[in-house]
Design a protein around this nucleic acid. Structure first.
Lengths: 192, 192
DNA sequence: ACGATAACTGAAATGCACGTTCCAGTTAGA
DNA sequence: TCTAACTGGAACGTGCATTTCAGTTATCGT
């Protein structure tokens, strides 16, 4: 009888695949390190060739690692959208997004020229969810209507990225970003 | 009689230095192209070795090119600070900074790991000027005082960077950034 | 249990894209 | 005209992902 996993891979290959994924995930949260195949392999206690082969290439490995990290974020956005008033959902999600990105600098920092299909798809879903939050918050009269939801979504995404990128990471800056953005997004009284 | 420039360099060397600088500057404004020595040399119609030698290295060449581009921006910040009410200066400068960065994606995009002393110094001066604008606008009662000037400065810098980075570059997004940020920075009435 | 064997491993080789340096030839300039 | 300065194609060094291949090991049929 076969002891092979359902992929048909040998048990040690499956285990090494896990090790590689864990090592890559760990390095994504650790700033300053170079995120090379060599570094990942060392962290995993494997040879570089093994790490690469396990996923068919560096891109696929990092795609798996990043999208694994992103999955709870996507789920959280969906949950907030269902269970919370739109404005609160938006504020909460923005704060959490900044925190997530701050804890994983490398995600937006060193992955520029890689091809990450799963990650891209998840990003797209995040954008869809945020856009829905904005549309609903608009309908509630909670945010201004003189800016298109698409633009506001981009603004929020870029803001989260930018603030997370700032070094040293600072809680004060993150809070300021949320505060200023949310206040700035409220319907403005015509003043002056 | 000597026809040498005051640097003691031969005339063709001086001219080639100029060509290299112009080519590098041109490439900084042109997105998509890799900012390699080879690319700069081709654009300048020179050999790669000549381009590198003219400045002693790629870093020095790009430092010269970037700080050349940044110089008018720095001057503009000084001028705004002297001649304009702080709040207006801040709004105007933010808009112009976004426009500048949008027109020179590569500056914040591909120069991450290079050593650019002149550029760094100019950035520091920009930060000082923006911080002064904020301090004055605060004193005028034009912006909120519950956030430290340093944090607001970082926020503005990062926002400009982030919005300029968004592709496709959009005037609408740039305007939205200025609007939301400036509205969010105003003293907020205690609402609700 | 026990080979037989296909799958797997990782050190070393390969390939590639850079920046930089060399050097034989060219040219500006006194 | 003579020579020191300059040029640029080619060679080199580096850092990387990926492939190769001789050796190892898990798995299966017996």
């Amino acid at each position: 009888m076969s002891t092979r996993g359902e992929t048909g891979r040998r048990a040690d290959a499956v285990r090494n695949r896990q090790l590689a994924l864990q090592a890559a995930t760990a390095l994504l949260a650790q700033p300053g390190t170079a995120l090379t195949v060599e570094a990942i392999a060392t962290k995993a206690g494997l040879g570089a060739a093994t790490v690469v082969r396990a996923f068919g290439g560096k891109d696929a490995l990092l795609d798996a690692a990043v999208s694994g990290l992103l999955e709870p974020v996507v789920r959280r956005a969906r949950a907030l959208l269902e269970q919370t008033a739109a404005e609160d959902a938006l504020r909460t999600f923005l704060a959490e997004l900044i925190a997530f990105q701050s804890a994983h600098h490398a995600i937006s920092d060193q992955l520029g020229d890689l091809d990450l299909p799963a990650t891209t798809a998840q990003r797209a879903e995040l954008v869809r969810n945020v856009e829905e939050m904005i549309t609903r918050a608009r309908a509630d009269g909670a945010i201004r209507t003189d800016l298109s939801p698409a633009v506001v979504t981009t603004l929020i995404g870029q803001a989260a990225y930018a603030v997370a990128r700032a070094r040293p990471a600072s809680r004060e800056l993150a809070d300021a970003c949320v505060t200023v953005l949310m206040d700035g997004l409220r319907p403005q009284r015509r003043v002056r």
